[in-house]
């Protein structure tokens, strides 16, 4: 790579504030912050664009095709009374399980009708 902001590749391994001075170092560092952040944003925005296309191409189309299927109701059993902390943990676990089940079933609709403590 050729010199960048009058800093040649020879200087990349050196203390540039000593050899080139404060002003040039600030200009060089500031430009790197700008270029670096812009590159990271550009790449991730491109991926965002692709993922938005994914939604249109794969999710919305499949959702229209998917027949609504509901799981057989499971016989409900009485839930034990547990502490508030346990409840919060339980809700977190159940939310994660539902999200995982949703993502693994290719858009298949289902309804959770009961929870049973084992």
């Amino acid at each position: 790579m050729n010199s960048f902001l009058s800093i040649s590749p020879d200087n990349y391994g050196e203390n540039i504030i000593e050899t080139l001075g404060f002003g040039k170092t600030v200009a060089f560092g500031g430009m790197m912050v700008l270029i670096g952040m812009l590159t990271v944003f550009a790449v991730l925005v491109l991926i965002w664009g692709c993922l938005t296309l994914f939604r249109v191409l794969f999710h919305d189309v499949q959702s229209k095709k998917t027949v609504k299927v509901e799981t057989e109701p499971v016989v409900a059993e009485p839930v034990e009374i547990v502490s508030q902390t346990d409840d919060e943990e339980l809700i977190a676990v159940i939310s994660a399980a539902v999200a995982a089940a949703e993502s693994e079933n290719d858009g298949l609709k289902f309804r959770v009708v009961s929870f049973r403590r084992l």
């Binding site: 990349y12 050196e14 203390n15 504030i17 404060f22 600030v26 060089f28 790197m32 670096g36 925005v45």
Partner: peptide, 24 residues
């Protein structure tokens, strides 16, 4: 976008490291 925004520290630390006398 949040994943991108959270890389700010990488480049800011780079900037201050230059000012402290580290090479690029």
């Amino acid at each position: 976008l949040m994943g991108a925004g959270a890389q700010l520290g990488v480049f800011v630390a780079f900037f201050f490291a230059l000012l402290l006398g580290f090479s690029p």
